[in-house]
Amino acid sequence: MIEFRNVSLTYPNGHQGLKNINLEIKEGEFVVIVGLSGAGKSTLIRSINQMVKPTEGELLIDGENTLKFSDRKLRKFRRNIGMIFQNYNLVKRSSVLRNVLAGRLGHTGTLRSILSLFSQADVRLALHSLERVGIAEKAYIRADQLSGGQQQRVSIARALTQQPKLILADEPVASLDPPTSHAVMKDLQRINKEDAITMVVNLHAIDLSMQYADRIIGLRNGEVVFDGPASSVSEKTFEDIYGRPIKEDDLVGDASNE
C-alpha cells in the first residue's frame, strides 16, 4: 500500500510541484491520474520511486517512510517498481532482449551483469515477458528498428522483468496513435489483473482514463481535486478537474480501426 501523508514538493526554482497531497493507493488497484499538463501528474508519479524527491511530508510504502531511505535501501526498494515512460527510454542501439534484461539489473550482482552473465532463469523470464506483450520474436533485433508501439511494449516487458509489485506509467500512450494506445492500455490492464500488480498511470485522454481505470485521481496545480472510482466519473467531472470545457483533443477515440 502506498500512502502519501501531507506530501509537498518544491522545485529548486521555487515552483511548487505538489501541494499537501494525502492519498492511499491499495495493492492491485488500477489508478489513473489525470490533469492538464503542468498539473503535477509527472511529479506525483515520479515521487513514488523518488526520481524526484518530495521536500515535505511522508511517503509510506508498506508502512515504511521511503523518504528516509539510504541510497542502498532506495536501490533495493526501486527493484520492486517498474516504470514506463512516454518516450519509452530504451537504449536504442542495444538489442530488445538486452533492454528487457536491464529490468534484472537490480537483482543481479554488479560483476555478473557487467559481464552479461545473466542466469538462464533471468533470460527465460525476459523472453517470457516479451512473449506476454506479444513481441518475443523481436528479442534479438536492435530496439531502434521497432515501431513506437512495439518499443513501448519492450519497455513494459522491461518493467515486467523486474517482477515488480507496482508499475508506474508516465503518459505511456501520449506518443502513440489511437489503436496502439488502446492495445498498450489493454496490456497494462491485463498485467494488472493477471499478476495483481498495482498500476499508477498518468493520462490526459479522458476516454482512456474512464475505460481502463478502477479509480481516477484528478490533479490541478499540484493539488488533488478529485478522487473516486472510475464508475462515478462523467465528462462533468473532467470539466471540474481541468477547470475548462472538454475539447475534442481531450479524447483519443475508440479502437475501431484496431
Binding site: M51, K76, A102, L105, H107, I114
Partner: peptide, 14 residues
Amino acid sequence: LKATGASKLQVLVY
C-alpha cells in the same frame, strides 16, 4: 535505469 534499482556501474555499462 536508476529507477529499476541499477547500481552506478551497471548504469554505466547498460
